[in-house]
Simulated assay, not measured.
Amino acid sequence: MDNVKTIIYAGLIAIGIRTFLFEPFNIPSASMVPTLLVGDYLFVSKYSYGYSQYSMPLSFPSFSGRILGHAPRQGDIVVFRQPGHESIDFIKRVIALPGQHVQVKGGQLYIDGKEVARQEAGHCPDEEGNYESQSVRYLETLPDGVKHYICKVVDPAVTNSMTYQEANDTPDFLVPAGTFFAMGDNRDNSADSRFQPSQGGVGFVPMENLVGRAEFLFFSVDADAPWWQVWRWPGEIRWDRLFDSLR
Rank of each mutant, 00 (worst) to 15 (best):
I27G: 03
I27V: 15
P28G: 04
P28M: 08
A30K: 10
V33S: 12
V33N: 01
V33M: 04
P34K: 10
P34N: 07
T35W: 06
L36H: 04
L36F: 11
L36T: 07
L37T: 06
G39R: 10
G39H: 06
Y41I: 04
Y41C: 04
L42K: 04
F43I: 15
V44Q: 01
S45N: 14
S45T: 13
K46G: 04
Y47H: 15
S48H: 05
Y49F: 15
G50Q: 09
Y51D: 05
S52R: 09
Q53T: 15
Y54M: 09
Y54F: 15
Y54T: 03
Y54I: 11
M56R: 03
P57N: 02
S59Q: 12
F63W: 15
S64E: 13
S64Y: 02
R66E: 08
R66W: 08
I67S: 07
G69T: 06
H70K: 14
A71M: 13
P72H: 06
Q74M: 14
G75F: 00
I77C: 00
I77Q: 00
I77V: 15
V79P: 01
V79G: 00
V79R: 00
F80S: 09
R81W: 01
Q82I: 15
P83I: 05
P83Y: 05
P83G: 01
G84E: 12
G84L: 08
G84V: 07
H85W: 03
H85P: 02
S87A: 13
S87E: 14
F90A: 00
F90G: 00
F90Y: 14
F90T: 03
F90E: 01
K92I: 00
K92C: 05
K92F: 05
K92A: 00
R93H: 07
V94L: 06
I95K: 06
A96I: 12
P98Y: 09
P98H: 03
P98Q: 02
P98D: 06
H101A: 13
H101F: 10
Q103W: 07
Q103N: 11
Q103G: 04
Q103T: 10
Q103R: 14
V104L: 11
K105Y: 08
G106Y: 06
G107W: 05
G107C: 02
L109C: 01
I111H: 01
D112V: 05
G113E: 11
K114W: 12
K114T: 14
E115N: 07
E115S: 12
E115G: 05
V116L: 02
V116F: 03
A117P: 01
A117S: 08
A117T: 06
E120Q: 15
A121H: 12
A121M: 10
H123V: 12
C124M: 04
P125E: 01
E127I: 07
E128Y: 15
E128A: 14
G129N: 03
G129S: 12
N130C: 07
E132C: 08
S133Y: 08
S133M: 03
S133N: 12
S135D: 09
V136E: 06
V136N: 08
R137C: 10
R137H: 00
Y138K: 02
E140I: 10
T141S: 13
T141L: 09
D144Q: 15
G145N: 10
G145I: 13
V146H: 15
K147P: 07
K147N: 13
K152V: 07
